[in-house]
Nucleic acid binder design. Structure first.
Lengths: 346, 346
DNA sequence: GTGAAAGCGCTAACAC
DNA sequence: GTGTTAGCGCTTTCAC
């Protein structure tokens, strides 16, 4: 059978000698149809290699059956793993996945959410830290309401709630606790001058981690050195250059807490290039526990984030918000993974 | 303004005191509308926080403006980077991105393509190696035609063409050449017993690389040892266990060619756990040149694949197949990246 | 058990 | 410049 255009229910109906309504009923399978009729229809469907038009179906009111996924950058291992969880759960729930990237541009993020609103996505999952600005916060609140009114759902995955009364699903991980654990670990090994690399300004994750960083110090009656908190992006190259500068300027630093494992990779390389050794001369810890953390040299001590679970939970809660009405704000645990990149200071 | 349902053009029209057609014209911006009317409409749009229904618009004939992206697993760095290219180009072309994963299941792959057909995606990009089976090949050819007839396009990204006359866009990379280059490199350093780890059975990429592997040997008047080609998946854990077994069984092996950098990570770790050193005792090379390859220890010599370019080109060619009519089959170059994981055999 | 008809939200002819 | 109308492909009452 040679095709020359997109067949419609009408064509299938004509081919099978029935009405369009019958074709629709056979395909939906939710209505009694005579066996003979059904098989005639199915034969026609196969002959024409017909597939429904998802747009037309959606228009009729059954929804689009899609979950949107908004992320800064798909290549980051952290995002990729959350994406995996989102995709898995969406598939299990019979949904398709739309992906958009924002490249850390708040305006683009907002624009992309509007696009998803046009698409009538069942849920819009925002992954990764948000921005600490009132204007941004307000626009986000409005979007949450707009999505809600349209029967959709805003999901914040890995960023804090927008506040009470804002219709949204929040699936966070314990950013502060993870930072607290890893800094305590360093402190208990005897480190006193710990640098935090990758304090991305105005970022919700940064705020929480700095809090954990400070509290771990306080718990031991110490004070964190604010000069050792160095601002920067979540990139390997930042880790490299920042370490070179830092270790040249501040010879008293004995440990580096990298905001992401990616940064840590740059830190480790810089340490080696500086002729120093990790962990003998400098201890290094990361955050995220992405798969390659174990393959760095030395294997990286880091904070594990349940990335896949984060994604799955986000979709599950958002899609069944009637069932999980009371648990629309969840904080998943993080934990320290001890490997080989920490030792007592020399 | 409190919303309580999804507003339609009609609502906006009523609110602005104009007809639905005028609203549509203002929003499309492709038709002369009086300035006063336009601003009245825009005020209403903002007041209602209206966004068009993409489904309804698509139904009307303007297409869905989406590109589908079918991949085995989003967490693999190789796929993630191709995905990035696809997403970038799609965005530039004003398209949204649909993502689906197949988890290396050919049946699921076929099913997913049908889903994309229902979605009326402008292009369906298949990323990664295909399967070497006639049944699979035939079904793929039929899908290519089905998509073509529906005005869509099948794009093969990183796998060979389905043959002449099959309507599809093919963007490959030089699998064979890369394998040839890296094996020649090893051979020229004096290695004679080189193992290939991760020969994924019935996979198009495997076939091509084995060819390059063999030809590099032949070019030097040598013969590759078929026993040293070990079958396995593209995973870190496979690299680890396979290396342990191999190096215990075959003490004559001096170099390992891992089918992916991910496998190579496992290989390096196994070598270290075996109490051996790389590259002094065993040389290791990878394939893909994913970002973390440079962070492995020792930094991995590998074959660079222009992943992002692969994705961008795939989308660009598919979306402008009228302009690029003669170049719907492109092979992008690969090249050797020499780092620290190769030395002459002891 | 099946068909006829209405209508989802939008846009593009076609009037005026 | 603007309104009226028809219809995209589908599902779903409502008849029969």
């Amino acid at each position: 059978m040679v095709l020359d255009r997109r067949w419609t229910v009408k064509d299938v109906a004509a081919h099978a000698g029935v009405s369009p309504a019958t074709v629709s009923r056979v395909l939906a399978g939710n209505y009694p149809v005579a066996t003979a009729t059904r098989s005639r229809v199915m034969t026609a469907v196969r002959a024409l290699d017909y597939v429904v038009n998802a747009q037309a179906r959606a228009l009729k009111g059954s929804g689009t059956k899609t979950v949107a996924f908004v992320v800064s950058d798909v290549t980051g291992p952290f995002f990729a793993h959350v994406a995996h969880g989102v995709e898995q759960q969406a598939t299990e729930e019979g949904r398709l996945c739309l992906v958009c990237t924002t490249h850390d541009d708040p305006d683009r993020e907002l624009a992309v959410i509007d696009l998803m609103r046009e698409q009538r996505a069942d849920a819009v999952v925002l992954v990764g830290g948000g921005y600490e600005s009132t204007a941004y916060h307000e626009r986000m609140v409005r979007l949450a309401h707009a999505l809600d009114d349209a029967g959709s759902r805003l999901v914040l995955c890995g960023r804090p709630s927008l506040g009470h009364g804002v219709p949204s699903t929040v699936v966070e991980y314990d950013n502060e606790g993870g930072a607290y654990a890893v800094v305590s670990h360093l402190l208990s090994r005897g480190h006193r001058k710990i640098a935090y690399l990758g304090a991305q300004r105005d970022f919700t994750t940064t705020t929480a981690r700095i809090r954990g960083f400070a509290q771990a110090h306080e718990a031991m009656g110490l004070a964190a050195d604010p000069d050792l908190i160095v601002e920067g992006t979540f990139s390997r190259s930042f880790g490299y250059t920042a370490t070179q500068q830092l270790l040249t300027a501040r010879r008293d630093v004995t440990a580096v807490f990298a905001a992401t494992d990616m940064i840590a990779a740059g830190v480790l390389r810089a340490i080696r290039d500086l002729g120093l050794r990790c962990p003998e001369d400098i201890s290094v810890v990361g955050y995220d526990d992405v798969p390659f953390a174990a393959d760095l040299f030395p294997a990286l001590t880091t904070v594990h984030i349940p990335t896949e679970d984060l994604g799955r939970t986000a979709v599950r809660l958002a899609l069944h918000r009637d069932e999980y009405e009371t648990s629309q704000h969840v904080v998943l645990g993080t934990h320290l993974v001890v490997r080989d990149s920490v030792a007592a200071p020399a």
